[in-house]
Design a protein around this nucleic acid. Sequence first.
DNA 1: CTTGGCACTCACTAGACTTGAGTGCCAACG
DNA 2: CGTTGGCACTCAAGTCTAGTGAGTGCCAAG
Lengths: 347, 347
Amino acid sequence: MARRQKSSVASGDLDARKATILHAVVTEHVDTAQPVGSSAVAAATDLEVSPATVRAEMVALEREGYLAQPHTSAGRVPTDKGYRYFVDHLERGAVGVAQQHQVRDFFAHVRGEMEDVLEQTSRLLSQITSHTSVVVGAGHSRASILSAQLVNLDAHHHLLVTVFSDGTVTKHSVMDPSGASAADVAEASRQLNALLIGTTLSSRIQVPSRADDVARLVREATSALHEAAPTIEGEQVYIGGSSRVAESFDGVETVRAVLSILEQELVVVSLIEDILDADVSVAIGSEHGLEPLSACAVIVAPVTLEGEVVGALGLLGPTRMRYREVMATAQAVSDELTRHFGGEPGA
Amino acid sequence: MARRQKSSVASGDLDARKATILHAVVTEHVDTAQPVGSSAVAAATDLEVSPATVRAEMVALEREGYLAQPHTSAGRVPTDKGYRYFVDHLERGAVGVAQQHQVRDFFAHVRGEMEDVLEQTSRLLSQITSHTSVVVGAGHSRASILSAQLVNLDAHHHLLVTVFSDGTVTKHSVMDPSGASAADVAEASRQLNALLIGTTLSSRIQVPSRADDVARLVREATSALHEAAPTIEGEQVYIGGSSRVAESFDGVETVRAVLSILEQELVVVSLIEDILDADVSVAIGSEHGLEPLSACAVIVAPVTLEGEVVGALGLLGPTRMRYREVMATAQAVSDELTRHFGGEPGA
DNA sequence: CTTGGCACTCACTAGACTTGAGTGCCAACG
DNA sequence: CGTTGGCACTCAAGTCTAGTGAGTGCCAAG
């Protein structure tokens, strides 16, 4: 299933031996962080072939863009395209037993509102994978209002508290310079509730145009609500393990650039959503178009609720990453998360 | 006022010339990031004194622990104690006009709930100072409940929505496996409201012990609320500009360590609260006891509401920092924030 | 097509040398 | 007596010079 999402070019498949060699270069390089030489490949594979033969193949692989040489007399390093091929032809691995237990355990004991669960999930992810994790909770533009209530804070301030069908709760302060009576506030609250129930944030509301205190409060409150609509509809983002960025890259400048991207939640969200596909998928190096992240790979998995994508989780690390393990973890957590919310909707 | 908080030792004051020299070393070192030599100091001050004399003084300053030498043939660098003296004897500077405008402008236009304001403030702070910023919104253990409402989500899930006197709103899911009727939920909501209004999270509540659906819901809801009490009472933390950490330190390991600390919100909060005092104050190097932050200085300012400390803001940078400017900014933003919430309580 | 042989390349390391900023000490000076 | 210029000394950092070796590309023989 996860095969060849975004399969980059028509360059198609490599013959078996080239594929084996590429695979060996990638795994070896991921392990050692060093360029991989022909003899190391010959030793690592079961091809029973001499380094010279490997070299010939590597020249071909380099010509086709799967490998690169840092300098003439060094071994080879996978290019983004090389990683791409590797990932596309990766047999789906299972997550390690220890991690599997950790994930199960986590979801068996986690409690609380969806927001808390997502935040803790992001911690879990970065802890298991040693990479930075991103968990995105989808916006709720389609959610309808279940309840609206105006609560009196003090003489000149009220709070409009709104509950949505997806379990989100929002609040909006409503200023009241002239200080309406408690009875008026209560009446406004009743009217707001009646007015807003069943509507969505994009619905047009018919507000009373009368000049009395009650009508004024109702108008103020609905306008506060709709003014804030863009923010409310926005996705929540939880980022875990940003310190891992410092471990993944050695150039301070790269670290800074990546952290800087992570600070821009909108960018992160759209990055994840761009990559997001039906199944686990991966963006490697420059594939995602964010140039400061060109040394990164991002692994994304959706979180679904009743068949609909309601969120996503992402793992961000260096292109030199243990794709099999990380992808398996992403898949496992995504599944558990889906199950968790599936069995406990609205939580 | 900001003078000599935590004044470290009885070693007292330095004579005027030593103070001038120390000052020169600090400012010069902050500028250049290099050890400062005697001739540079002689040139930078108006002491009209030869490098040799400066050297003699520097030897004394080193003996007393204010300066250190990275190696024999290098200039001097301030120690934590040196920075401490510098900060304690810093005449309070005003914030630059440009920044002042930026701050004013920000608070003139910022809108929304306190949480949003605090978060944006942390962005503002890190943008102005080029350092990582922390904004802490105090917990609200003393806040009383203004309204409690049970909202029906679906057949087996309800949501307890609680509004506190400080304007906080919380939600707690309440499971209902047996599926109470809409009327029962409404009745439970009424009872919860009556039961909880005026109480605080630490209040003991007399819950009905009857076995009917309504009583069961009330029990479930109150227990959900009180179980989550520790979380709710906790402070909110907003961290801005964590990418600045990568700019401030060149060792990747230091960056990692600092980021790692920043991820632990509890640690950050207690750090800030430990440092927090009536006025702007500073913790330099090892003063705050967090060994991974020994290369950092933290500048803290309180945010007050009606005389009470309701939050704090902090700026975290390398000990080699422009204390005057950063402290002035912290003070300015703290003042504006206090004024902002003072004029707009509950928002 | 594969392979061993071989010359070649070039990053990396280590040592030797140089440079220069900065020091500590000291004798002389006002 | 504090201050100062002189001076020998120190030592990090830069430059240069091999030397090393992993790894390559090429080629002729199997």
